[in-house]
């Protein structure tokens, strides 16, 4: 079972709801699973303070630096200097890398934890995945460079790191997924699983006289489906409540 599961895909395909549902599903199977939103984006209010699901990564920078330097005083001092703030501000990739380092630390410390990482949309996800290598080129020596090697060893191991790309049955989403898979393989990370979200198949089958627009949508869906191999297909959930949608999706994942 993978320890770190990153969920990405085109903007708006349902990454957050799926990631929370996956976390719930794994918990229901007895696993110690946690959800982390990589970019501290909005998650549904009903889950915001749920400590059983959401792992907070506040303060990860100073924790990380403290660990590297062996002293909280020095760490605070450095993070307070204007020069350091300048470096940090000019290299936003640095904060992403520190976040990743922190997450991997958590996983190394607790061998039973599984983290579901709700990641940025495709374009920015590739950027995050590219960061460790980029920084390795700049920081050839030093504590961070060593960490990067460790990071990359973990993240290129399919037994440890699993990437799920979520998509929906539209032409632009499917094409973007294809491109993202290629980019991920080029970076030598594990081959992603592709998951189709919002499939209208179930609804369509349940209606005696579906309206023309639904007929058209299901035709489109079938055209796009023919070309791909999906690890899992998740039906469109007829609800407007995030909590209900998450329950239903996690039910699907438990099957």
């Amino acid at each position: 079972m993978s320890r770190l599961i990153a969920v990405s895909g085109k903007g708006g395909v349902g990454k957050t709801l799926y990631s929370i549902a996956l976390t719930k599903s794994l918990r229901e199977q007895g696993k110690e699973a946690y959800y982390i939103n990589f970019e501290n984006q909005n998650i549904p209010n009903c889950f915001k303070n749920n400590e059983h699901i959401v792992l907070s990564t506040a303060g990860s920078t100073s924790e990380y630096i403290t660990k590297k330097l062996g002293s909280k005083t020095i760490s605070n001092w450095i993070t307070d200097t204007k020069f350091f703030k300048a470096v940090y501000g000019l290299l936003p990739g640095l904060s992403h890398m520190i976040m990743l380092g922190h997450i991997l630390d958590i996983l190394e410390k607790s061998p039973h934890k599984i983290i579901i990482l709700d990641s940025p949309a495709s374009g920015h996800f590739i950027s995050v995945l590219s960061i460790p290598n980029q920084f390795k080129k700049i920081l050839k020596l030093g504590a961070i460079a060593n960490d990067i090697d460790r990071m990359m060893a973990l993240m290129t191991n399919p037994g440890f790191f699993n990437i799920k790309l979520l998509t929906i049955p539209t032409s632009l989403a499917v094409q973007e997924t294809k491109e993202t898979v290629e980019q991920i393989e080029k970076l030598q990370f594990p081959k992603p699983e592709i998951i189709l979200n919002n499939s209208l198949e179930n609804i369509f089958k349940s209606l005696e006289n579906p309206p023309p627009f639904l007929i058209q949508k299901i035709e489109n869906e079938n055209k796009l489906l023919g070309t791909h191999n999906f690890k899992k297909i998740i039906p469109y959930i007829v609800s407007l409540e995030p909590k209900e949608i998450i329950e239903k999706i996690s039910g699907q994942l438990n099957e």
Binding site: I65, K68, L69, I74, W77, I78, T81, F83, F84, I138, L139, K140, L141, G142, A143, I144, A145
Partner: peptide, 14 residues
């Protein structure tokens, strides 16, 4: 002093 410590983390060339 801050740079000296930072150097430990980032390496001198950086």
């Amino acid at each position: 002093k801050a740079l000296h410590y930072l150097e430990k983390v980032t390496g001198p060339v950086f």
